[in-house]
Design a protein around this nucleic acid. Sequence first.
DNA 1: TCCGCCCATGAGAACGATTTCACGCTTTGC
DNA 2: GCAAAGCGTGAAATCGTTCTCATGGGCGGA
Lengths: 343, 343
Amino acid sequence: MAKASKPPTIQDVARQAGVSAATVSRVLSSPGRVSQSTRERVSKAVSEIGYTINEAARSLRLRRATTILAAMPGIGNPFYSTILDAIVTVATSRGYGVLVAGHLGDNPAKWLADYYHSNRADGLLLFDGALDTRKLHAFTGENASMPIVASYDELPDPQINSIITDNLQAAERAVQHLYDLGHRRIGHISGPSRNTFPHERLVGFRKAMFERQLPIRDEWVYAGDYTIAGGRVAASHFATLAERPTALFAANDEMAIGVIAGLHRAGIECPRDISVIGFDDSTVAASFVPALTTMRQPREEIGRIAAETLINILEGKRSAEPIRVVLESTLVVRESTGPVASG
Amino acid sequence: MAKASKPPTIQDVARQAGVSAATVSRVLSSPGRVSQSTRERVSKAVSEIGYTINEAARSLRLRRATTILAAMPGIGNPFYSTILDAIVTVATSRGYGVLVAGHLGDNPAKWLADYYHSNRADGLLLFDGALDTRKLHAFTGENASMPIVASYDELPDPQINSIITDNLQAAERAVQHLYDLGHRRIGHISGPSRNTFPHERLVGFRKAMFERQLPIRDEWVYAGDYTIAGGRVAASHFATLAERPTALFAANDEMAIGVIAGLHRAGIECPRDISVIGFDDSTVAASFVPALTTMRQPREEIGRIAAETLINILEGKRSAEPIRVVLESTLVVRESTGPVASG
DNA sequence: TCCGCCCATGAGAACGATTTCACGCTTTGC
DNA sequence: GCAAAGCGTGAAATCGTTCTCATGGGCGGA
């Protein structure tokens, strides 16, 4: 029967139902404005013909793509892919498509802004801190500004809506956990200092130690680099100390894993001889042996809230002020931390 | 200056350059057909005005979205996110956008087909084996069929272009590696038998053992479930055996990790007492202690080739026969396998 | 009974690009 | 020297929606 090589249009449906295209459109978008009898006739025609709305034409007319763009530095990174998963779930349920952008070219800001100007995406979820948001605003603001919700390991431009996690508080909680287990000699492996968040973790560590009147020795604070290898190097540092901390707080899980493995080589067992707490609850954390105690970043929540916020903005529920959401990390207790060793 | 609230159109550029819209369009799509002087004038006008082509209008006219749809069962799963990363890279470099679809509704086939019929996507990259491709074809084939390239843990519909990895051969290579290290008593932890690929790994294991005239004892082949916990259970099974294999081939990395951890509790050390090889080279493999020897599935390659194949098809380089690409896994030797223990 | 209002619907104009066709002008070939 | 071919360009149709008006009929109020 249906052998038309071209997909059916709203006109075909109209003809079949004996109404005008305008009416069909109304049935599809605001059924309340159409009488019940025609509504039924049209619906029947739609399913008979197998009509699907042409989104390109719709976008053109409405100046709206019903699509959001997600830009992340590395989709392959499990941290981001979890977020992306949540984004897709939310967006889908609200009728939006999700376009992903990966490693951008030499002018990323323009590249992203073009998605907006070309009417491919209505808004941007930005997870790449390397991008200069000021530049992006310059591009996007030339005619009309692209709605953006950002979330990344930097203190974002205050003008931009952002979802961040409270790293300071999370670091304090990590220390609190070790403290509760009886640890008093606590060390820290920090992340690259140029980034804001690792720095906040360091600051939070210091604050927590200070408030509990615990000693902060210089040789107990090791400047790491976020890698497993870096954790191993830290291990050789701590292993040679005359007086060693009984617990370590690592600024991410990779370094935690590295330091545990490195200490193991040196005969120092976790959690028997030393407790280690990580940060992020990355995929490796749960499967490592010993399973890693860590501060979980609420990744699904970040993605979910970011997507919801952006879509709310797109649908007009816009507030005058830039939106700032601060999420809390949660402590996930596993095997790598335990009571302080007696003796 | 530029305070027009609406984005500039091709007409605006035409006016500015003193030519017709048709000419601007030609400059943008096939510059060769325009004289150099006008070409320069138009290009200048384009950058002066800051014109970006409206993709919605373009899609409508061309009946083409220049976008592909990627459907995967779980984007959060690192296995798929690596693939997605590769897809995005390829697609971007060829000027295509990537839409992602996650957990679909109650009628996934229709959902995906609608993306095509609605002119949002030109083709589909399918990584979800749970989807009935026949059903999908039924939806998509009604008017014109949506180009599909599939890749998943099932033997795909022979009518569909597919990218798969050679699990049989990979399993044989895993056994070969253990054999080369001197192991003769080799066990296997298989995956859920209802899936094709784990089954192929089991078959490959059997074949390799048979060809090397090695014994296949029933109690040395354990039916696992792809989880870490399952690996732990397998460990307690192997630990209690009177005669134990000196090496194990696990059908995925999670079970390999689980079995290593479980055996460790029982005082059996890897690789000292037993060698274990995994499968997939998932993200945990490299960071585990001991770092996991494993058969790496060429994930980036799967994504890359799938995207390239689909785009080639979209651009007319279509072959009459369905395309089938079979990729090989590569052996990644790390720490979890070693020479057979003497004695 | 008649006026006015509301409700359901249709005709037609956008939305912004591409592309066919036609039209001059220059070049080529004989 | 003239026909034919080629090249660069513009006018206008087209892609499939949505939405503004306009219209006609039905109904309630005076």
